[in-house]
Computed example of a mutant assay.
Amino acid sequence: MTDTTPSEPTDDGRPAEKPVQLNDVADYDELLATHDLVLLEFVTSGCGICASMEPVLGAVARSAPGIVATVNAGLVPDLAAEFGIQSVPTLVVLRDGEEVARLDDGFQQAETLVDTLETHAVQ
């Protein structure tokens, strides 16, 4: 994956400290091949709510199980279409490659996202 932020778990198995940026479907496929639990955020350039989610996702990446990734729906339309993205931000939780939760009603608190990931980590 092409990214300027840390994207791999640390040596002790903790998740990356910042969300991984997915630039194409190949990045997505690689992410699913290496992680069982994924929080995937769909954004677009210029989306104010999406921008306000950046620090929240950073906190989630540092404290929740799984890995956090973002994808620009405008730059990776095939992936956005696969998930039927109608609005941004849309957050999708994937467990073993299957969608298990979706939050698409605007800004989300870190606590909500952490709780959602923790719920799906134990299943």
Score class of each variant (00 low, 15 high):
M1E: 14
M1I: 10
T2W: 01
T2I: 12
T2Y: 11
T5W: 04
T5E: 01
P6I: 15
S7H: 06
P9G: 08
P9R: 07
D11V: 09
D11T: 00
G13Y: 00
R14Y: 06
P15H: 09
A16W: 06
A16G: 12
K18T: 13
P19I: 02
V20D: 01
Q21D: 12
Q21W: 00
N23I: 02
N23A: 13
N23K: 12
A26P: 09
A26H: 12
D27C: 13
D29Y: 01
E30Y: 02
L31A: 04
L32Q: 08
H35G: 11
H35E: 14
D36K: 01
L39P: 08
L40H: 06
F42S: 04
V43C: 14
V43R: 15
T44R: 02
T44G: 00
G46M: 02
C47K: 12
C47M: 11
C50I: 00
C50A: 07
A51C: 01
A51V: 05
S52N: 03
M53R: 15
P55C: 10
V56R: 02
V56L: 03
L57D: 07
L57A: 07
L57R: 07
G58D: 02
G58E: 09
A59T: 13
A59E: 10
V60M: 02
R62A: 08
R62M: 09
R62N: 10
S63N: 10
A64R: 06
P65I: 14
P65W: 12
G66S: 10
G66V: 05
I67P: 00
A69V: 06
V71C: 07
V71R: 06
N72F: 08
N72S: 09
A73M: 07
G74T: 14
L75E: 15
V76G: 15
D78R: 03
A80L: 09
A80E: 04
E82P: 15
G84P: 06
G84C: 07
I85R: 05
I85L: 10
I85V: 10
L91F: 04
V93D: 06
L94T: 11
R95T: 14
D96H: 13
G97P: 09
E98M: 12
A101C: 03
R102N: 07
L103C: 05
D104I: 07
D104S: 13
G106T: 13
F107A: 15
Q108F: 03
Q109L: 10
Q109S: 09
E111Y: 14
E111G: 11
T112D: 11
D115W: 00
E118G: 01
T119H: 15
H120R: 09
V122P: 00
